[in-house]
C-alpha cells in the first residue's frame, strides 16, 4: 500500500514537472512582449528604457537560463514576482486561493449531493419514466457550457423572482450568509456537469454490477435489496464514480476562470484572467502550476481511494 502510494505520488510530481515545463515554454512562444505592452502607451519611451525594463524583468537572458531561474525558485516555493506590481506571485495567489477553493468545493458538493441519489434512483428504477427524465436532464447538464448555464440562471431568477445575486463579494469570515448566497449560483452552474456525469456513471456502473455473479450470490443468500444495492453494488460502483470526480475537478477548475469573472469573485480564476491580459508571465505561470498541482493532487488522492476500496489494487505487487 505504501509502495503504491509512493508510486502514485511520484508519478503525480513527474506530471506536474512536465506541465510546468510545457507552460513555461508555451508562454514564451506566445507573440507579444510584456515590456512593450507595459511601456507602449507612455510617450517618448527610449530604447534604453525598454532595455532597462527588459533587464529588470530578466527577459534578456537566454530562455534556458530563465528556465533555470524559474526551476531554482520553484523548488524553494518561490514563483517569482509579478511583472505588474512587483509583489511575490505566491502571495498574490494565496490571497486569491480561498475563494476559488470554496467555489470548487461547493460545486463538487453540489454535484455529489445530487448526482449520487439521482444515479441510484435511475439505476434502481431503470427504464422507468423517472430514469428517462433523469437521463435526459443529465445529457443536458453535461452539454451546457457552465457560463451559459450561469447566465441562464441569472436571467431567469431575475425575470421570475426579481432576484439577482449580490454584486459585492464578501469573504466567508466577513459575512458568511452573504458569501454563500453569492457563491450559490456559480457553484450550481459549475457543479451541474459534475452532477450529471456522476449520475450517469453511477447508473451505468451500478447496473453493470447488479447483473454480476457475486450480486446473484448475495441475493441467493437472502440479503435485502438495501444491502445488495447500497453495500455491495454501491461499493463496487465507487471506483468509476471517483474516476469521474477526479476528472471533473479539471473542468471545475477551468470553469472558475470564467465564472469568477461573471460573478466578480476575487479568486485565482479572475487573477489569471487579469494576468493574461497584462502578459504577467510569472503570475500566469504560477496560477497554472497551482491549478495543475490541485488537479494532480486530487487525482493522486483518487488513486489512493481506489486502493482503499479495492484490495486487488492495494495488494498489487505485494502478493506472490
Amino acid at each position: 500500500m505504501l509502495l503504491y502510494a509512493g508510486r502514485r505520488l511520484t508519478y503525480g510530481l513527474l506530471v506536474l514537472a512536465l506541465v510546468a515545463t510545457l507552460v513555461f515554454l508555451i508562454i514564451r512562444l506566445i507573440p507579444g512582449d510584456v515590456v512593450r505592452l507595459q511601456l507602449a502607451d507612455a510617450p517618448g519611451v527610449t530604447q534604453a528604457q525598454i532595455d532597462q525594463r527588459t533587464t529588470e524583468l530578466g527577459l534578456d537572458e537566454p530562455v534556458l537560463i530563465q528556465f533555470g531561474h524559474f526551476v531554482g525558485g520553484l523548488v524553494q516555493g518561490d514563483l517569482g514576482t509579478s511583472f505588474d506590481d512587483g509583489r511575490p506571485v505566491t502571495t498574490k495567489i494565496l490571497e486569491r486561493l480561498p475563494a476559488t477553493l470554496e467555489l470548487g468545493l461547493l460545486a463538487i458538493l453540489f454535484g455529489v449531493l445530487f448526482g449520487v441519489p439521482f444515479g441510484l434512483i435511475s439505476a434502481i428504477r431503470h427504464h422507468s419514466l423517472i430514469d428517462n427524465v433523469m437521463r435526459f436532464l443529465a445529457v443536458i447538464g453535461m452539454s451546457l457550457p457552465n457560463f451559459w448555464l450561469a447566465l441562464l440562471l441569472i436571467t431567469f431568477l431575475a425575470l421570475w423572482f426579481g432576484w439577482s445575486p449580490p454584486l459585492v463579494y464578501a469573504s466567508p469570515t466577513e459575512n458568511l450568509s452573504q458569501n454563500l448566497i453569492h457563491m450559490l449560483l456559480p457553484a450550481i452552474a459549475l457543479g451541474a456537469a459534475t452532477m450529471a456525469s456522476i449520475a450517469r456513471m453511477l447508473r451505468s456502473s451500478l447496473l453493470e454490477v447488479l447483473g454480476s455473479n457475486f450480486i446473484r450470490t448475495i441475493r441467493s443468500r437472502g440479503a435485502s435489496e438495501r444491502v445488495v444495492v447500497l453495500k455491495h453494488a454501491g461499493r463496487s460502483s465507487m471506483i468509476p464514480v471517483f474516476t469521474v470526480l477526479g476528472l471533473q475537478v479539471g473542468s471545475i477548475l477551468g470553469g472558475t476562470v470564467i465564472l469568477e469573472r461573471i460573478f466578480a469573485i476575487p479568486g485565482m480564476g479572475s487573477l489569471i484572467f487579469e494576468a493574461v491580459g497584462q502578459r504577467d508571465y510569472p503570475v500566469i505561470l504560477g496560477c497554472v502550476i497551482f491549478y495543475g498541482a490541485i488537479f494532480i493532487f486530487v487525482n493522486v488522492v483518487v488513486d489512493l481511494l481506489y486502493a482503499v476500496i479495492d484490495p486487488r489494487i492495494r495488494y498489487e505487487g505485494a502478493s506472490a
Partner: peptide, 8 residues
C-alpha cells in the same frame, strides 16, 4: 466471479 472482490 461469485464472491464480492471488495470484502474479505
Amino acid at each position: 466471479t461469485s464472491l464480492d472482490p471488495l470484502f474479505t
